[in-house]
Design a protein around this nucleic acid. Structure first.
Lengths: 205, 205
DNA sequence: AACCAGACCGACCCGTTGGTCGGTTAAAGG
DNA sequence: CCTTTAACCGACCAACGGGTCGGTCTGGTT
């Protein structure tokens, strides 16, 4: 069942360029030809490898987006330090456009989710799954923070996770143009402010 | 220069139904015929009143969305009480689907902004203007709260306004399906938690 | 050399959709 | 009545985009 090297390489090129352009212009606003022209490939080549545009995008989600979100937003949570600064750091990092490329991976989720909402339930679900994984991990790391005494006992971890995700997603809508330093700075500052309110009351020594 | 009554009424019907369906299915995913069929009108009638689909949507933004956002999110800020609970209340209210109709006006902004971002700069700008008005009003009401001693002096009002807007917008992406009570509750709770951290230190009597 | 399979080409198909245009209806004014 | 004009109709157009399909090219096998 293994794919030939040539096939694998072409599909990989298609997915990479596809993510780049879909992310830039949106899925429905990008025609297959937009992508194929850039790669000097033909319609025939495309449909030789993918069943449909939808199938193609799902490949992109599962091969590229999942990994990227996981690496940026889930993996970093796997430490045993105080979770709050770890979360701040991961979000800050996710909002940073990649060093080598121009994609701000942290944004893609919000953009695509909004685009597919009400238009393609299947793709929506794949994207929602990614958010869910993130959320579950946030909750569990927050709960651990509670046990370790970094977070006050009264805190509703699910609520906090939801609020973190919402504010992060919402930043996208505001940072429409180029990634705006000012907005990012404000966001991180307020996030820290909010996190402060989750810490346990200081017990005087 | 005044419009005939008939003309005004037809345009009004078109805008109302247009907002309803655009909000439901998205602008690019709604064809003019989708709307015209529902109103028993023809292409001819439409183009007799509007120059283009784009022009039509701009009318909707300026006649309906602006007013609605203003009424839900800006007007309520005009009191002289403690701004923080007022803001919470306005957001809570904006997330509530309208009593008589099904539209959750608070959401429209985020949906449309994301949809037009990268696709239609002119419309994007009209929508961004609305956000700006909201932001400016939030900032000024927060500053007044500082003067009145409801908000701690160290607080960065612009940052807080940005954070409020971001989290509000982000809720949309999460509340994809029907308005989810649970999510809304979590959001409001955490917002209150965050706001607590903006209050001045209690001075012991 | 003959053959085969898989990668790829690009002309074509066809549904959708924004927009056009010549015509009809009906109300208002003379 | 007759004329004018605004409102409205609906057949039609052209562009676009996803998807199809018969065919070509190339590298490996026998």
């Amino acid at each position: 069942m293994e794919m030939s090297l040539k096939r694998r390489e072409t599909m990989h090129r298609l997915c990479g360029k596809g993510l780049e352009i879909f992310n830039e212009k949106g899925y429905y606003n990008t025609s297959l030809d937009d992508i194929l022209t850039e790669l000097d490939l033909s319609k025939g080549a495309f449909y030789h490898h993918f069943k449909s545009k939808e199938d193609y995008f799902i490949s992109i989600v599962q091969n590229l987006i999942v990994q990227k979100v996981y690496a940026l937003l889930v993996e970093p949570l796997n430490t045993f330090e105080n979770p709050l600064p770890i979360i701040v750091e991961s979000l800050e990092n996710a909002l940073e456009p990649g060093k080598r490329n121009e994609m701000a991976y942290g944004f893609m989720l919000n953009d695509f989710l909004t685009e597919f909402n009400k238009r393609n339930e299947e793709i929506s679900n794949y994207l929602k799954d990614i958010i869910n994984v993130w959320e579950v991990n946030l909750v569990s790391v927050l709960k651990r923070g509670k046990v370790d005494g970094h977070i006050a006992r009264h805190v509703d971890c699910e609520g906090v996770a939801t609020y973190i995700i919402a504010s992060f997603m919402g930043m996208r809508t505001l940072m429409i143009d180029n990634s705006n330093r000012q907005l990012k700075y404000q966001y991180i500052q307020q996030l820290k402010q909010y996190f402060k309110s989750l810490e346990p009351e200081r017990v005087l020594a």
